[in-house]
Nucleic acid binder design. Structure first.
Lengths: 232, 232
DNA sequence: GCCCAATGGCTCGTATGCATACCTTTGGAG
DNA sequence: CTCCAAAGGTATGCATACGAGCCATTGGGC
């Protein structure tokens, strides 16, 4: 039996240095639509506290985002660091590591999240939130779609009430998006996707875990076969 | 809608310093039974490479494990760092953070892993491996049970072929074990657990994803309700 | 019996990251 | 108009981590 467990446990303890990981996180929060264009990031001091790094490191990361035209900073009270309306496309680089690894993890996490969310009794604000993100995604333009779509999936994870699960989905989503950036985004896929989103959210709001899992699984399988087809 | 997504994305970028995280990983590999008592850890140089930290840091971590009587090191060719036959019980400390958070993530990951593993065509060595770990767990003494049990669950995750999923299960398992350390381990539970393990592995080997998921979910729910009962 | 490869043990200079303190800018409150 | 709270901008000294090299020990192969 190949000791995959060793691979898993003796993998690198850190993905990069503090600076790189901080950039990565801020980038994620923008790309996944957690902080939308025009909105303000938390203050440097707050980010430093929450991310557990020094303010110096946060500033270096923000400086890097500024140079790449993701954000702009303004001084003074009511100033801050704001996400630009037009955010650059990600650099193409990087080989896609193990496509199956990403897709397997993603399916487990997201199908599980949908099922879990459907099994909880959601509060009114949560229900409203889900519907709102669904609407955002369904009316999004091609340019916004990736971000709004990610945000919707993240909202489903949030609805499980588990911070760890939400974090895992966010991480997995970023890895998926890296793959998706290499294949075309077409109108028909988009319409199909929206219909599936509709079913997923309905199942969750109806409190039908089995249906939620099933519809989410179908949705993910669609993207997965598209990816496998394009990425050989 | 409470912005849980922000909590997830603006969480600390690192759990501790390089030393602490290295200790944690080595400890995990021992506690989860990936390196069994009497076995040798990879060499310091290899660990440094694989964990992505300097050898100095690896050595400091190992030194810490030595002082806590987890391992012993021998010099010379065919030397190395060996796991002690008797490993100490974990320090009780720490408040259990969010019990539901752990249990939710665990169920999503492990039920998904069981389903995924059952849906793959497993090679002979993988099938043999699963049966072997099942046997190990079913014949384990009370003292060994936690470790053998963890190793079996990890083997199921490995059988998905996804390194990321395996890593996530390992992480989640450690968090679960922290909780389990606070409740008694009784013979009847153990027998019940073994019967469930049997069903799970059978479903996986039979290639029945739905049954694998169902039996794993039942298994996890059992432990979950036990935990919720004991931890108020 | 000698050699030597592979292991753990050790040291030192450099780079990264941190905490802390202070400065500058800004716009609303009083 | 003045004040000041809250934000970004800057500088310094210390702690952590790293890379690289060398030493010491051991046991099997020749």
């Amino acid at each position: 039996m190949p000791e995959h467990a060793q691979e898993a446990l003796f993998r690198p303890v850190r993905a990069g240095n503090a600076f790189e990981e901080t950039v990565e996180r801020l980038m994620q929060s923008i790309r996944l639509g957690v902080v939308a264009p025009g909105e303000r990031l938390p203050s440097e001091r707050e980010l430093a506290t929450r991310l557990g790094v020094s303010r110096v490191t946060v500033r270096e990361a923000i400086k890097s985002l500024q140079e790449n035209h993701y954000v702009e900073s303004r001084r003074g009270r009511y100033g801050g660091t704001f996400v630009n309306e037009e955010i650059p496309k990600p650099a193409p680089g990087k080989q896609f590591g193990d496509v199956d690894d990403v897709l397997t993890l993603r399916k487990v996490l997201e199908a599980g999240a949908a099922e879990t969310a459907a099994g909880r009794s959601l509060g009114p604000s949560e229900r409203r939130g889900l519907r709102a993100w669904l609407d955002e995604a369904s009316t999004a333009s091609l340019g916004e779609y990736r971000r709004k779509d990610s945000r919707l999936h993240l909202a489903i994870a949030e609805a499980t009430g588990s911070a760890s699960l939400t974090a895992a989905v966010a991480e997995s989503r970023m890895r998926t998006n890296e793959l998706l950036d290499h294949i075309p985004l077409l109108e028909p896929n988009l319409a199909h996707s929206n219909a599936q989103h509709e079913r997923i959210i309905t199942s969750i709001l109806d409190g039908d875990p089995a249906a939620a899992r099933r519809s989410m699984a179908e949705h993910l399988d669609g993207t997965a076969s598209l990816l496998r087809a394009f990425l050989v």
